Computed example of a mutant assay.
Amino acid sequence: MTLDTLASTLSFAGDTGRLNPVKLFLDADIVVQAIMIGLILASIWVWTIIVTFMLRMGSVSRRCDDYEDGFWEAENFEAYQKDRRRGDVPMGKVAGAGLIEWRRNAATRSVDHEGARQRIAMAMNAAVGEEADKLAARLNFLATVGSVAPFVGLFGTVWGIMNSFFQIGQQQNSSLAVVAPGISEALFATAIGLFAAIPAVIAYNRFSHRVNMFEGRLQRFADKLHAALTRQLESR
């Protein structure tokens, strides 16, 4: 089905006053059409990120819940880490970083307790930051679309209005019937820009908050593990 056929299909019989988005797109200038296509593709990618992030965040939260419940009940943290094979869980990576550093310090003959505490904390803090960065990797695109898309749509509107005024000069007719269609097509670019930007801004704010909360949860887990590991070092 061609776009012309789709535009005819979407039109209501006998209702010529109703806006037809496909017709507005087809009648627009080539520059405005290119801008509209770019904004539509950006909107599709925004919604792809939204859906995938929600699914990923839900999966990560469930796996971390399961890991943490078993971790604090385990008698031996290293054995639990090895037996459960939880390297793909963010909490497992944080715990793994701390346990590796703890093992290195415990293997020395004379343990520098203060230095060991600092090294274990730094190792787990680095792991916490890495996991938070992985979760937030695609959120920058949402921020970019949210801030840029309205201006891109506005550029398409300005270009379309300029083209409409040019047509007025060519036809030497300033009738509203001549100007209105071109302006409507131009304003449609701004509407698409807002359609892409609004969900991007909302999703970015919401997801950034969730990433920050999750990072705080990892940090609290790291602090508890840090206290447990340093306690074991001091008892040696």
Rank of each mutant, 00 (worst) to 15 (best):
N163L: 11
H226Q: 03
C64L: 05
A107D: 11
A132R: 11
A34N: 02
P21C: 04
P90A: 11
A95R: 00
W159T: 07
A28Y: 11
E234F: 09
A203M: 11
P181R: 07
S184T: 07
D69H: 13
V32Y: 09
F141Q: 06
S175I: 01
I183M: 15
D83F: 09
D88L: 15
A42M: 07
G182A: 10
R56N: 11
E75K: 08
N173Q: 06
R86G: 15
F25M: 10
S147I: 05
T144V: 07
I44M: 05
D133T: 15
V152K: 13
R84D: 09
I49W: 00
G160W: 03
R236I: 13
S184F: 15
A137D: 10
A107W: 00
F12E: 14
G216E: 10
R103S: 15
A34M: 11
E73P: 01
V152E: 02
T48I: 03
R103G: 12
V179C: 15
V201W: 12
E185W: 10
F188H: 01
I35N: 05
S110C: 08
A13F: 09
D69G: 07
T108M: 05
A228W: 02
V145E: 01
L6P: 08
L26Y: 06
G153T: 08
P181Q: 08
I37T: 04
G160N: 05
A13W: 01
L6W: 09
A136M: 08
V60H: 09
T5N: 14
A34C: 10
A186K: 03
T2R: 09
E185I: 07
N76A: 14
R206V: 04
H113D: 13
A136L: 07
Q172Y: 08
